[in-house]
Amino acid sequence: MKSVLGDKRAIALLLGPALLVYTAVMLIPMLWSLGYTFFTGNVLKGFTFVGLSNFERLFTDPNVGPAIIFTLKYALIVTIGQIVLGYLMALLYQFFLKGSSSFIRTLVFFPVVLPTVAVSLLFQKLFEYAPQNGLVNSVLNLMGIGSIDWLGDPKYAFVVLAIMDIWRAMGFYGVLLFTGFLDIPDDVMEAARLDGASGWKLVRHVVFPLSLPVLISSAIFSINGTLKVFDSVYALTGGGPGSATTPLTLLMYRKAFAGGNYGYGSTIALLLTIMCLVVTVVIYRTNSSNSKEEAS
């Protein structure tokens, strides 16, 4: 019996192609990219070994600090927005709309599958200031508020970016957290109701603690995505005005391609990868120590 499922030739045939492609196109380039961090130059100019100077530059480059701060600020605010609004949507589905939530759930989910480029261009038009007011400014004018140069002002550009990425993803977290509610045993809810818990009390003391694991994994998923934000920034603001909305991903892209320095670009990419790993591990650790305390 064991020989059939342990057939070496069959394993090689089944696993081989995927492993080969994955190794050649993803694993080796990852390691190669690590190697680039000790070089400067690009494919046209050729590469020269520079030792650790890319890492030194990382600490002295005046663009890096703001990019790190922007990445973290964006990730934190958008993650909180996505999770909090997603959770409110999930509560709405579960406790208010109940059986008839399917339609709204499906509708609010739709932006999740829309191309980021299409959504970004739509938001550019929605928040347009010049040459003509978009929908948002027109509504503001109607209420007697003057037009705002949304994408021309660093502060507002960030707001539009955050609104857009929360709009795009909250339907996703709504469904994810809503599915989490289905794991809460009915008898627990029933017992809580019999004990007189209802409304916000029920949510705060029963539903919230029980959905904490799903909330944590949603947060990890969200922060991992938002730390890597590229498409929406590139398409909506292009990193501007100036470099006010430039995250590490975009800085890396500019240094590598516009600046023609693959070595320094790879160094920034490495910094980003380390940030993703650290954040994931930190959230994961706090979560597992929490659940251990609950279990004991």
């Binding site: 342990g6 994955y22 694993l27 380039p29 990852m30 190669w32 680039y36 890597k228 991903t249 993703c276």
Partner: peptide, 29 residues
């Protein structure tokens, strides 16, 4: 389904690809 040594590790190796930002592989490619 198949049984052989190291299959857990290989599955974890594939997981690395989900975690890593795309920027890490662009330049060598």
């Amino acid at each position: 389904v198949m049984i052989f040594r190291g299959r857990r590790q290989i599955l974890l190796l594939f997981l690395v690809g989900i975690m890593i930002p795309g920027q890490m592989i662009l330049l060598p490619l």
